[in-house]
Design a protein around this nucleic acid. Structure first.
Length: 425
RNA sequence: GUGGGUGUAGCUCAGUUGGUUAGAGCGCUGGUUUGUGGAGCCGGAGGCCGCGGGUUCGAAUCCCGUCACUCACCCCA
């Protein structure tokens, strides 16, 4: 048997109502905040990702699905959304049309990681990007949208962490200080950190090993080394969040793993998720558009892991399925009449179903029950001869006889106008 | 890439110190007045016990390998 690829999951029908809510809420909210949807390709030239995410990041170094096109160019399945959005933004000159551009996307992303709770090789993200303003209140708006999204979906026990990693210059200065601090006692750090202090020094800060954490507790803080510009930007972000009453926690260890981030970074985690507990995260990336060959354009955005959202989504949000009608048609005369009625009802957009395999009324009713039908229309030879059908209320077993020509009308009254047709007869 | 755990019916799992035709619950299907569903009762279908090798008179059970799933490291949404 051919199985699906490791870490790549089917979303089966019973999960679809959950996904429908997750996506519908994203669309509704993003548009409410003034964002327009964009659909970008699922694969691009490899260099788009390596250049924007960063050559030495884990994502680029060992997690991308990269392959050769027939002409030899290197292509990659998108590991995240921002790079593609920026590329489209530049390619179609969305810069010049408006001074500010707000875009959102929903779709699958691909990363070759070892699967784990809340982590898959194909997963889905909802993300937003704002181009063209460095106003700290736009950071607040983006974080506010993210917070509102989770709160609309009633996800439990969330914490918002924020930090600022400053400008490129701020970081350069800070990193040398951090390195001296770490190298001073480098043998006390874990192997990973001993390597990281050279390759990606900031990540030493968010090492999970307790020994490393206590060592870095006293390390110089990035927040103390921001330029006055960066510092006041971050100050304004915090004031904005307070103004909107969005609770947040400062976390000086919050360092994003993708190279393009600058200034504000943020992350929302849930305590119900296991090891992969980040459900949404993002930040500013003021340098990326220029890096990819565009004009200097400040930008800010986030991405949400929708599988993780699904893990937290309470059942109470899933709407009950709409009313269904089942046609129990049997006998030489009843069956064709019922099939015709089924067709008519569907043309009137009733949700109607039958079971062609069922021969007896009993088996019809059993299927009706299993499908969760609210009403069953019984039509056998006896009914056909009188041009009647029986409508049975599956909840209370009440039945009425109705002329075939009036079935649609009666069903409409019962379903859409709340008329109890079983009492009136 | 590195560890730990788990692989028995469609699903959730039992299976005793190796011992005969491998079990349960749920689900599916049929019957229980032949035209009235859900509950009860009775019956039925459905398993190369993940795969390959080894030990043994005998392996679902012990050993080795392999694959898959899963959790964690790592990384990130």
């Amino acid at each position: 048997m051919i199985r699906s690829i490791k870490g790549i999951k089917d979303i089966l029908p019973d999960q679809m109502p959950r996904w429908a809510i997750i996506e519908a809420t994203a669309h509704k909210l993003a548009q409410c905040y003034g964002f327009s949807e964009i659909r970008i390709p699922t694969f691009e030239q490899t260099q788009l990702y390596s250049r924007s995410i960063g050559e030495s990041t884990d994502v680029v170094e060992k997690e991308m699905y990269t392959f050769q096109d027939r002409d030899g160019t290197s292509l990659t399945l998108r590991p995240e959304g921002t790079a593609g959005v920026v590329r489209a933004f530049l390619e179609h000159n969305l810069t010049s049309q408006l001074s500010m551009r707000k875009l959102y996307y929903i779709g699958p992303m691909f990363r070759h990681e070892r699967p784990q709770a809340g982590r898959f090789r194909q997963f889905h993200q909802f993300g937003v990007e704002v181009f063209g303003t460095e106003d700290p209140f736009m950071d607040v708006e983006v974080i506010g949208l993210l917070w509102q999204y989770f709160s609309d979906l009633q996800l439990p026990d969330l914490t918002l962490y924020i930090n600022s990693i400053g400008s490129t210059d701020d970081r350069q200065h800070y990193i040398t200080q951090l390195q001296t601090y770490v190298l001073d006692q480098v043998q006390d750090f874990c192997e990973n950190c001993q390597r990281r202090v050279q390759t990606n020094p900031l990540r030493v800060l968010d090492c999970k090993v307790t020994k490393c954490r206590s060592l870095t507790d006293n390390a110089p803080k990035l927040l103390d080394h921001l330029s006055s510009l960066s510092s006041s930007h971050f100050q304004s972000v915090q004031e904005g969040l307070s103004l909107l009453k969005i609770p947040f926690t400062l976390d000086h260890r919050l360092v994003r793993g993708l190279d393009y981030y600058s200034q504000t970074t943020f992350e929302i985690t849930s305590s119900h998720l296991g090891a992969q507990n980040t459900i949404g995260a993002g930040g500013r990336y003021d340098g990326l558009v220029k890096n990819l060959g565009g004009p200097i354009t400040p930008a800010v955005g986030f991405a949400v892991g929708l599988e993780r959202v699904n893990l937290l989504l309470p059942d109470s949000l899933i709407p009950s399925s709409p009313a269904k009608v089942f046609i129990a048609a049997f006998g030489e005369l009843g069956r064709p009449t019922g099939i015709k009625l089924l067709h008519t009802l569907r043309q009137s957009r009733f949700i109607a179903e039958t079971d062609y395999r069922a021969k007896s009324l009993k088996s019809h009713l059993r299927t009706a029950d299993r499908l969760g039908a609210q009403l069953t229309i019984i039509i056998g030879d006896d009914e056909k001869k009188k041009d009647l059908v029986i409508i049975r209320n599956m909840q209370n077993k009440m039945q009425i006889e109705v002329p075939i020509s009036l079935v649609s009308e009666k069903l409409g009254l019962w379903m859409y106008n709340n008329v109890d047709i079983f009492l009136i007869s």
